[in-house]
């Protein structure tokens, strides 16, 4: 099965990449944008989706600093 793992910085942890993007948008004339966060996307084909939470917690993310969401494609 094809799945997509969305990885985000945990709420409350300073996200300077998100801040930099948020500050850059008004420079291009885009207004009314806030709470920008930058994360990572991992796509994979996996036979046994029951393994996914363990994969995410042991390798794909660092649970101390990141949250993840598994999305079926």
């Amino acid at each position: 099965m094809r799945v997509r793992v969305l990885i985000r910085p945990k709420a409350g942890i300073l996200d300077p990449q998100g801040q930099a993007v948020e500050r850059a948008l008004p420079a291009l004339g885009f207004s009314g944008v806030e709470n920008v966060h930058v994360g990572r996307l991992v796509e994979l084909d996996v036979d046994d989706t029951a393994q996914l939470p363990s994969m995410c917690e042991r390798l794909l993310t660092n649970p101390l600093i990141e949250d993840y969401e598994i999305v079926n494609v």
Binding site: I13, L14, P16, Q17, A20, N62, L64, I65
Partner: peptide, 16 residues
């Protein structure tokens, strides 16, 4: 830190 031998994590510098 990733190996769990030390607490915490290292993140990208605040100034990027």
């Amino acid at each position: 830190c990733e190996a769990g031998l030390l607490p915490g994590a290292l993140l990208i510098n605040d100034h990027l």
